[in-house]
């Protein structure tokens, strides 16, 4: 019986899921989500059109590529097998759908940049390709949440999860726009961006408050304890709630009343803290999975 206890997996009680708990998982999903959201803003809100293809667009595509590369390099044991078969279960698997969306995004976004820069006169085609790429980017944002929701973890099997991924990726994308606005690379009013960022930060906090109150009874106590008193306390309370939402939200409100003054430092702090919040959220969320007890 001693061997059973030391193995730690021979118990009927709720068990943590540590499959996606590495830091690089959180990094990869932060990069793909933030990059995709940034690209979507550039395409649908037209914030990148003032100077043709901008640093913002290259950054958006680069972030998605980097995130995808991290997953591809570190997650898979047999990459050639994956490349041969990843699309065969597209009817059921959110991994397959996500990877297909990543491929569509990767190819179309690069082709549209090349067409736009080197082949003037193809505006309609370029615009069509960017819109399809942006739609694929939306799938890239939500597919990890839909994958999580197919697992046996009650906390992840929430209908709110895709919305939470959309909102947090949206925060990441806006935080980068705020940073780039300082470099005068995006054509949009800083006040609008800050108001939108403040709204998304508040919405993100609200979504998680609702989500945490709706965890099914079987693992609710364990999940809340893990986040507030357990090993994820720093990521959840400090990284996500305080640094990622509380302080930047307060600074957004302060910056609104100081809009006649130079707000460069304030704006820089808001965007960096918001990005820390997005990363922290991925960190604790991916580690907070607990499977229910069998009896």
């Amino acid at each position: 019986m001693t061997a059973n206890k030391s193995a730690g997996t021979f118990v009927i009680q709720p068990r943590p899921v540590d499959i996606w708990g590495e830091l690089w998982h959180a990094m990869a999903f932060t990069f793909t989500g933030t990059g995709s959201a940034l690209y979507t803003y550039l395409v649908f809100l037209g914030v990148g059109e003032a100077r043709g293809y901008t640093i913002a667009e290259f950054l958006a595509i680069g972030l998605v590529f980097l995130g995808a590369l991290i997953i591809f390099a570190l997650e898979l044991t047999y990459r050639s097998v994956f490349l041969r078969y990843f699309f065969v279960n597209i009817g059921q698997s959110w991994i397959s759908r996500g990877v297909v969306a990543l491929f569509i995004f990767g190819i179309l976004s690069v082709v549209s940049v090349l067409l736009g820069n080197f082949n003037p006169g193809t505006e309609t085609l370029t615009r069509t390709l960017t819109i399809i790429a942006a739609l694929a980017a939306l799938v890239v944002i939500v597919y990890p949440s839909l994958l999580l929701s197919t697992t046996s973890v009650p906390f992840w099997r929430s209908r709110l999860l895709p919305l939470e991924f959309l909102v947090s990726s949206g925060i990441g994308g806006l935080a980068i726009i705020v940073l780039l606005q300082g470099l005068r690379d995006v054509a949009i009013s800083l006040d609008y961006v800050l108001i939108a960022l403040g709204f998304l930060l508040a919405a993100n906090l609200l979504l998680y408050l609702i989500h945490l109150t709706r965890i099914p009874i079987g693992t609710k106590r364990q999940t809340i304890e893990l986040l507030t008193r357990g090993e994820l306390r720093s990521w959840f309370l400090m990284g996500f709630v305080v640094l990622g939402i509380g302080i930047p939200l307060a600074l957004v409100i302060v910056s609104y009343f100081l809009r006649e003054l130079d707000r460069s430092a304030l704006v820089l702090a808001i965007s960096l803290l918001a990005l820390i919040g997005v990363f922290s959220q991925r960190c604790w969320l991916l580690r907070a999975g607990i499977k229910p007890a069998l009896l």
Partner: peptide, 17 residues
């Protein structure tokens, strides 16, 4: 085993480990 690429998503999906 020749098609498994080591994604491990099945391990998270299975309620029974």
């Amino acid at each position: 085993k020749d098609r498994c690429c080591g994604v491990k998503a099945c391990m998270a999906a299975c309620p029974y480990d």
